[in-house]
Write a protein that binds this DNA or RNA. Sequence first.
DNA 1: CGCCTGTTTGACGACAGTCAAATTAGGTGG
DNA 2: CCACCTAATTTGACTGTCGTCAAACAGGCG
Lengths: 225, 225
Amino acid sequence: MFDQAQSLETFGTMRDAYGDSRVSPAPTNKLLKLAKHRRVFLAGDPADRFFEVESGAVMVYRILDDGRRQLVEVVFAGGICGLSADELHESCCETLMPSVLRSFKSSELARSDWLRARVVERLQVQLSALHDHAVSLGRKTAEERVCTLIVRLQELEHGDAKATEAVALPMSRGEIADYLGLTLETVCRTFADLARRKLVEIGATKSEIKVPNLGRLRLAACCDA
Amino acid sequence: MFDQAQSLETFGTMRDAYGDSRVSPAPTNKLLKLAKHRRVFLAGDPADRFFEVESGAVMVYRILDDGRRQLVEVVFAGGICGLSADELHESCCETLMPSVLRSFKSSELARSDWLRARVVERLQVQLSALHDHAVSLGRKTAEERVCTLIVRLQELEHGDAKATEAVALPMSRGEIADYLGLTLETVCRTFADLARRKLVEIGATKSEIKVPNLGRLRLAACCDA
DNA sequence: CGCCTGTTTGACGACAGTCAAATTAGGTGG
DNA sequence: CCACCTAATTTGACTGTCGTCAAACAGGCG
């Protein structure tokens, strides 16, 4: 299930991290430290554990028989992945960068009220993000999708600060394409176009871009009223 | 917030429906009986209530400034809609057919452990459905999307029975288009094509179709392994 | 320096969108 | 029950955005 070469360590219980002493101290959760591009789980694996991203980011994706891939979620710190309504995972999950995940037994969800409360809260946020994403995938043009992603990453990194700091893209062109329902080539062309029109500036390292004017980018992203 | 002409009635508390006596009997939830195409809430409305679909079905959608619409969820009996991470709804919600909704105060979620447990369970199911939908929107062709929808509706209505009974489409061509990220015309053409190739049979009333061979349709839907 | 991987650019084609018109269904009133 | 009106669906012709195939280019590392 996990990659062989990953480092995996067991830390203290939730109590340590959250200072909540109502929670049972059983060793039902542990921290996983994973390098970049490490598998967390694969479709078909038993879904007996789920994960909270403590730091870093993971992508959750599905692959069709003929190889087409769609990233269904990109989960950053605070987010949850690996919860399944089924006994088995229907998606795959992989780190986008070095990350720390807290692993929970799925069965714990039935026992711990505290955990349920936390999960409900998070799922609401992620549900809303999935709604946004559905709008992008279903109704936005290539350019709008790319701009939407950049705006989201910009807000994630710099809060709502209007600062014109560089945004670090946590994904390759191919991963962006699979997230946005486009091809690698279209993503490249779109970036080039945005740069030509000064909506973004692409750094030397292609995974760092600057946003000279966030307002204009937001407009190009067609952010819904 | 609600349509003016709707019938709205208050029934007993959850206790009646679920036989759970731990729950506070406060009048925090009530049943709404809505006709077809009635608004449940609009984007921008205060999200102080959420809903469980008791019977019927609703669609949750977002509209971009220029009028493009995307249905982000179609929720059938048992499903939940109107939960928001924000103070305000970001989506609109409308019945697809005569429906009964149970309304809950959002604040109740913080108080009732029972309600949280129920919501967690449902959100997992809907999260998974949204993942499926993202794959459709991002990576499937028009024909695959339409077939995927029909297969899902077929399973919803007839369980997994292999029966060749008619499937009732709960949505118009335009609504299907907005759900699948296509245009009305493309949906029509795709139906026509599927009928020509005997993958479906379209009834006199265009909202009822038969599936002669579910296996073949599933194949055409490109259901992931 | 040379290989490998990721990115960029170009030429061309196809799937789905747009615009427009014809046809059908559904609902209302005579 | 039928005529009529409106809304929904269907079909057609054409266009455009994005996908496909292919090749050039850049960067990291042994």
